[in-house]
Design a protein around this nucleic acid. Structure first.
Length: 325
DNA sequence: CGTTGAACCTGTTTGC
DNA sequence: TGCAAACAGGTTCAAC
């Protein structure tokens, strides 16, 4: 579910909702996605949540040092953090303690104001880890630059020196931290670059265009509180709005909003990838699989819908939205 | 260095 | 209608 804009949205919501709260107790459900479940039970109660940060697709709940009354181990007395990755279906949000727990709720932290901070994750592709300072620092070294902070020269270098497909590079968290399947396709569409192009074959200009597209799209998506495709909800339980602005992702069979060519889907870097075959020229040898029936009719249906709503808009004298749906 | 496919797990949508 | 296959915002690992 969550890429950089969605995680940023959740982190901001949590910052608003739970900053300064103390964790009173913790209840665990299934724990196969938690690094060391006992560490959570042991170290979280009594800790205060002092900051909520985002690092790529991770959230970091910074915890107060444990009590200094001498009967705690050195390890527990130091600064520590709760590292949270939402995987595909993870959600983290505060909830009234008396509210029944949603299905797949696997972590419940009772807070000192009576609410519970709950983590739900149907597929359990997420990850939660309690980490002291040193192991956390070690963990974070595995990731590349934040796409909102990286300079265009550094971005261009990290892309243009590689033979891998640009889509694989954008998705590689060691190259950039935070980009996933939606925002890689959206930025490639905007930059008019085919996902299967090799990094080393991008011109400096193309790399810079892509850098700009990524920044624009990620920032706009954060303002619109992320993309809600099926079930993404932020810390207030609200869906995002960015899915209305998708130009490629999920639009197979629909018209490209620049050139009206039908958007196609193919597998690149092991992921469904959406692109405009005209705006984003494929590298030599890239084969586009045929349009499935459901998508083949989508473009025609969309035209029909647009025509109808345009007509009714005129009839009713209303100003229409410029959004496709 | 790269790519591909499978695995992890559950839920929803699509196809026949 | 019903059931099986395909698909899903992520990451990791083995095999080639």
């Amino acid at each position: 579910m969550p890429e950089l804009p969605e995680v940023e949205t959740v982190a901001r919501g949590l910052r608003q909702a739970i900053l300064g709260r103390r964790i009173v107790s913790i209840t665990l459900g299934k724990t196969d996605f938690i690094d060391d479940p006992m560490a959570l039970e042991q170290h979280l109660p009594g800790r205060r949540i002092e900051a909520v940060e985002r690092y790529g697709k991770f959230m970091l709940l910074r915890l107060s040092a444990a009590g200094t009354n001498g009967n705690l181990s050195d390890d527990a007395a130091k600064q520590a953090s709760l590292l949270v990755h939402l995987g595909m279906t993870g959600q983290m949000a505060p909830s009234p303690a008396e509210k029944p727990r949603e299905k797949h709720t696997h972590v419940c932290m009772l807070l000192d104001d009576g609410r519970e901070l709950r983590y739900t994750d149907a597929r359990r592709f997420g990850r939660i880890a309690y980490l002291a300072e040193a192991p956390l620092a070690e963990e974070l070294t595995r990731f590349g630059a934040d796409p909102l902070e990286v300079g265009k020269e550094q971005f261009a270098e990290s892309i243009r020196g590689r033979r891998a497909r640009i889509k694989a590079l954008l998705l590689d968290q060691r190259v950039l931290r935070g980009v996933g399947n939606i925002y890689s396709d959206e930025s490639l569409w905007r930059a008019k670059i085919h996902p299967a192009q090799l990094g080393e074959n991008l011109s400096r200009k193309q790399a810079e265009t892509l850098w700009r597209a990524l920044q624009k799209i990620l920032r706009k998506a954060i303002v619109l509180r992320g993309s809600s495709i099926s079930d993404f909800l932020d810390a207030e339980g609200e869906p995002g709005e960015y899915q209305r602005r998708h130009r490629a992702y999920g639009r197979e069979g629909k018209a490209c909003q620049r050139c009206k060519t039908v958007i196609r889907r193919g597998m690149v870097a092991g992921r469904s990838s959406y692109f405009c075959p005209k705006c984003q020229p494929a590298p030599y040898g890239f084969v586009v699989s045929p349009l499935p029936k459901r998508a083949a009719t989508a473009a025609a249906e969309k035209m029909e819908r647009t025509r109808r709503t345009a007509k009714s808009r005129i009839k009713m004298g209303q100003k229409g939205s410029d959004l496709p749906y």
